[in-house]
């Protein structure tokens, strides 16, 4: 297996799917000669040409609407929205059009499109370039939401997302682009809606995704020294959601900590807590704890920024707390 970055895994997935299916095309701001603001499309313009790697004006509504219209006619667009923060500029297209068209038309069309975007803090990007907004999308019927944490997952899931016939928000994390991991050289895909147990354990279940998988594994490593055996469940996709893996882990450990970077208030973690209450309440030995973003617009100052999001220490403290209750 090759060791590659999360960024290269994304590019490889795009390249392989574009080569496999000529209906796949890319559109977005600065994705052509420039290779994307986070350089995830480098080389694709040269390989596939301007028809299939389409630089767009700064027009997020037109990017998403255009992807939708072409998907209805059988194209498989992968639209890049440079920052998840910018989805606010095209929210009506995503929420009112993309998510609802198939239903409103009673199944006359399929909408095989992916909206690739990235979010998250950690680069002093301040309040408008560092949010984690996945809960906006999980709230809308008709959309899938995928948030991979490793090079292996991002490649396999992006390939699946491109082949899937539903609209998918594929949210990468800007701090993961340089992270490295093993990726097979041969073809593989990962099904949507399957969580991955990144570390098996018997004492506490951590439910997490995206960059917070890293913090959770870091905490688990520290806690191991204290004899606490943590299971880290990487949800990978929030919708569809792998309830089975979540619930069986909860039943095994009886203790749950939910960790996400998005603001705690009305975050997806609240949905997981509710799910467990509804379906596995009797398995719980203690109230579920949440480690999540603070209720604050992301500050520019790097020290303050770090305070606003989870880290391994905060996760470890929450694990100890849930075991002490």
């Amino acid at each position: 297996m090759a060791i590659i970055t999360y960024r290269d895994a994304i590019r490889d997935a795009l390249k392989e799917e574009m080569a496999r299916d000529e209906q796949v095309y890319l559109l977005g701001e600065d994705i052509a000669q420039f290779g994307g603001s986070y350089k995830t499309c480098v080389g694709l313009f040269e390989q596939f040409g301007k028809e299939r790697v389409r630089n767009t004006p700064l027009s997020e509504m037109a990017v998403v609407g255009c992807a939708l219209g072409s998907a209805m006619l059988g194209k498989r667009p992968v639209a890049e929205i440079m920052y998840v923060d910018f989805t606010a500029c095209c929210m009506s297209q995503i929420v009112n059009e993309v998510a609802k068209t198939r239903y409103m038309y009673a199944g006359q069309v399929e909408i095989p499109m992916v909206i690739r975007t990235q979010g998250g803090a950690g680069r002093a990007s301040a309040a408008q370039h560092a949010q984690s907004l996945e809960a906006w999308f999980t709230h809308v019927p008709g959309l899938y939401v995928v948030m991979p944490s490793t090079p292996y997952d991002v490649k396999g899931l992006l390939k699946t997302a491109i082949r899937d016939n539903n609209p998918i928000l594929f949210i990468e994390h800007k701090l993961l682009y340089n992270s490295k991991g093993e990726v097979p050289e041969q073809e593989y895909t990962i099904p949507l809606g399957k969580a991955d147990i990144k570390r098996p354990g018997k004492d506490v279940t951590i439910l997490t995704w995206s960059r917070c998988v890293e913090f959770s594994l870091g905490a688990a490593k520290e806690l191991e020294k204290e004899g606490i055996d943590v299971e880290v469940v990487d949800l990978r996709s929030l919708k569809p959601l792998d309830e089975e893996t979540i619930l069986s882990s909860v039943e095994k450990t009886g203790h749950v900590v939910v960790v996400h970077e998005a603001v705690k208030n009305s975050g997806f973690g609240a949905e997981l807590v509710a799910l467990i209450n509804e379906k596995a309440f009797d398995s719980l030995d203690a109230p579920i704890q949440r480690v999540a973003g603070e209720e604050v617009p992301m500050p520019f100052n790097p020290r303050l920024e770090a305070m606003a999001i989870p880290d391994s220490k905060k996760v470890a403290n929450a694990v100890k707390k849930v075991l002490s209750l």
């Binding site: 509504m61 609407g65 255009c66 059988g74 194209k75 297209q93 009112n96």
Partner: peptide, 13 residues
């Protein structure tokens, strides 16, 4: 909102 969707159809054509 219609015209941005229409241009996608035009692009596919």
């Amino acid at each position: 909102s219609g015209p941005v969707i229409s241009i996608g159809v035009a692009l596919a054509l």
